[in-house]
Design a protein around this nucleic acid. Sequence first.
DNA 1: GCACCCTCGTGACTTTTGTCATGCGGTTAG
DNA 2: CTAACCGCATGACAAAAGTCACGAGGGTGC
Lengths: 202, 202
Amino acid sequence: MKPIRIVLAEDQAMVLGALGALLALEADMQVVALARDGAEALAAVRTHRPEILITDIEMPGLSGLEVASALHGEKSATKAIILTTFARPGYLRRALEANAWGYLLKDKPAEELAAAVRRVHAGQRVVAPELAADAWSEHDPLTERERQVLRLAGEGHASSSIAAQLELSEGTVRNYLSEAMSKLGAGNRVEAARMARAKGWL
Amino acid sequence: MKPIRIVLAEDQAMVLGALGALLALEADMQVVALARDGAEALAAVRTHRPEILITDIEMPGLSGLEVASALHGEKSATKAIILTTFARPGYLRRALEANAWGYLLKDKPAEELAAAVRRVHAGQRVVAPELAADAWSEHDPLTERERQVLRLAGEGHASSSIAAQLELSEGTVRNYLSEAMSKLGAGNRVEAARMARAKGWL
DNA sequence: GCACCCTCGTGACTTTTGTCATGCGGTTAG
DNA sequence: CTAACCGCATGACAAAAGTCACGAGGGTGC
C-alpha cells in the first residue's frame, strides 16, 4: 500500500509546520515537501509529482489560486486542495475554474483535512458545503479597471494618487469608482472596496 | 519528570488542531485543553491550571490580550504566551502590560513554539526580537474617541453614520478624524485607519 | 456592418470631507 | 486654584469625492 504523497503550501511557517505534523500522523500519508509561497509550491509539485497539493490562497508572489491554475494549465496529475481562512464565493469560483479538487476552510476541525485528502485522492471533489450554493449565485460585475481602482481606493489612496499610479485622468478614476459603487450598491469607495473584497473579487 | 501542561487557544479550528498535534509530539509536554475563543480559554485555564497558556490574539469575544490581562489580574500562576500573525508594536506593548511571558509570531518556524514553551516554563521571557526594540518606541497618540471614530471610518462609514452610532454631531466626528489624521500624518481617514491598525492601536 | 461593451476622457454640478478658529463644561495634576 | 487636557459642539471655508451626461476609439460577437 503506497502512501498518499502530499506537498503543503502555506505562508505562515508555524502553521505550515503544524499542518505538516498533523498529516504526518496519518499512516497512509507522506508529506514530501513544504512550501512557503506559490513559487516554491509550484517548484515542489513539479519535482515531486505528488498525488495531492494542499495550498493556502493568500501567499506572497503567486497565490494558491494561481498555482492551481498553472498546474491545471500544464495538465499536472497532482490534485489541488485549497485551504483558506476565507469563505468568499469569488475565491471558490476561481478555485473551481482552476479545476481545484477541494476547497476547505481553516475554520473546520483538523480531522477534516485528512478526510478531504483521502476523498480527493479517491477521485471525489470536496467543497465546503456552506459555499457550494453561493459559488455560482453572483458573478463579479466589475471590470478589470474597476477592480484596480477599487483596490487602491481601499488602501486609502486619493483619486489623484490612483490616477497617477494607473496613468489615468482623475475624472476617469472618479467615474470608475462611481460605477463600481453603483454596481455594488455601496455608499462610498471604502464600503465598495470592502464589499468587493468580502466577495473575493479583489 | 512531570510534563509541562498546556492550554491552547486559537479560533481557526484546523490551526488549533494542528498546533495541538505539533505540541503533542513533544515528550515533555501535554496539551490539556483546546479553546476556540477567549472565554473558553479563560475557563479552561481556571479549571486545568496549566503551566502555560498559548493564545492567539484575534478571537471572537475576548481577545487573547484580554485573556492574558484577566489572568494577570487574578494572579494566576499560568504563564501566557501570545501567538499571533501580527508584528504590531501596540499588540506587543499591550501583551507586556498584561504581563504575558511570550510574544511569538506565526511567521516563525514551528520548532520555535516548543522551544518558547520550555524557555517560558523555565522562567525566561520570550519576545520576537524584531519587535523588542519597537515596542516602547512609539506610544499610541490617539484618544479613545479618536480610536472609535477611526475604526468606523475604516469600515467605510460616512461621517453622518459615525455620528449617529456614537451619538455625536457630524462636525465633531470630522474634527476627531481631522485630529487623528494630523497625529498620524495621514492624508485621509482611510489611510489614518490603516496606519493605526498596522500599529496595533485599533 | 452593427450592436454592445470596455476604456478613457471632459465638464459641470452637488455632496461629503477635511481644516481652522473658537467656545464651554468637566477632570486631573501640580 | 489654575493650567492643561479632553469631550463636545458651531460655523465658515477649501478641497475632495461622487454624479451625470456626453463623446471618441477599440474590440468582440453575430
